[in-house]
Amino acid sequence: MAVDRRKFLKAAGLVAFGVAASPLTSAAQEVDSLNLIKPEELLQEKPLTAKRWAMVIDLKKCLDHENVKDCAKACHEEHNVPFFDNPKDEIKWIWDEEFHNAFHEANHEHIAEKYHHIKVPVLCNHCDNPPCVRVCPTQATWRREKDGIVMMDWHRCIGCRYCIVACPYGSRSFNWRDPRPHIEKINENFPRRMRGVVEKCTFCEERLAKGQIPACVEVAKNDAIVFGDLEDPNSKVRELLRERFSLRRKAALGTQPEVYYLV
């Protein structure tokens, strides 16, 4: 069994660089059904690595609202993100946003009807030039040189919320209240947070280390979200960006977001 799984995870590594996602989804659920990943096994997993992780989201496939909602659900369950019933205390790593909120500069009065029905999945853009990192007074958030992921250190964060102020995408959330009583289903493989710290999407850095693709990519149907190495010209993300027109949120600000949206 363990051997099979390792084989699969190696395959998943390749898939992440682009091959069809459907066999992946079913097999990945198998991984979830396993209990704790034993330390000695973990050591033998081959981590997924890239020079520059990036995500390509196909807006056409975001007409399927359930699909977008499932992605958010998978992410939030994976990372013990609490659920608060009010927008004031809300914590969100990835969520569905109206097109005109996610892309106001691209929106206009006579835009095709379908754009009114799209739910855009929005998350941390893991910018190449992240303003949140620039303002953090304690280096509690930083951009990982090896693969460009913008990380958070919840042991270090003092909760000044300057990063939230600096983020042009509203991608960061603050734990206004103790999140622990509000976690609906606990994932034992991931820590919770304490109140008073900021949190956000980490491109599933902990899953990549175990050779797994991000949770949202895994559950997204029809290749709605593709994840891969932007520096690899043969990667699926590069192929999609070559072939189709894409947008980035607020690209004019110079943050160099690494989440692309196919129109």
Binding site: P39, L42, L43, D153, H155
Partner: peptide
């Protein structure tokens, strides 16, 4: 683990471990 993404610990006896409190220590 958090800051360098370095998850493997090599003990003085050469054995390798996953640097995890809940998964290695508590195991």
């Amino acid at each position: 683990v958090v800051r360098d993404g370095d998850r493997v610990y090599t003990a003085p006896d050469g054995k390798k471990y996953n640097k995890s409190l809940s998964q290695t220590c508590l195991d």
